[in-house]
């Protein structure tokens, strides 16, 4: 099997797991969000990868070329990126307000604050 030929997918999986690991393991709320972002971005790569056609160019009609990459995944990913940006904006603004309310963005410290009466 040609495992190495599919190296894009290995990268996707590596990034995905990296991001996921960060989300789970980090205490810092901002770092969590960064992990989440990496996680989402890996999925964008997955989509882009599957849209690639070997030897194809950008999908703009031009009589010099007859093979084009699939444009649809790009369009989808554009939407997904927007979603990602929006998520990040909401997430970060929540963190800002958490910081204002608790004066910390470390999860453990927040728990400590909450346990106080």
């Amino acid at each position: 099997m040609d495992y190495f030929g599919l190296y894009n997918y290995w990268i996707v999986i590596f990034l995905m797991m990296t991001g996921f690991y960060i989300v789970i393991s980090r205490d810092n709320l901002i770092k969590k969000l960064i992990g989440l972002n990496i996680f989402q971005t890996s999925v964008f790569l997955l989509f882009i990868t599957m849209g690639k056609v070997k030897g194809g160019t950008a999908p703009i009609i031009n009589h010099h070329f007859d093979t084009y990459s699939n444009p649809l995944p790009h369009v989808l990913i554009l939407t997904a990126i927007v979603v990602g940006v929006a998520t990040m904006a909401v997430g970060l603004s929540l963190v800002v307000r958490i910081n204002e309310a608790y004066h910390t963005i470390e999860e453990d410290d927040i728990h400590l604050v909450e346990e106080e009466p």
Binding site: V23, L36, V43, F47, T87, G91, L94, A101, Y102, E114
Partner: peptide
């Protein structure tokens, strides 16, 4: 103020969930 941390927690979980769904849809499209 716990509304904020709850929303944050939901945001993390929810985004992971919907990204998983996105992966599923991508693989199906593939």
């Amino acid at each position: 103020r716990r509304a904020l941390t709850s929303a944050y927690q939901y945001l993390i979980m929810g985004t992971i969930g919907s990204t998983f769904i996105l992966i599923g849809i991508g693989l199906l499209y593939m």
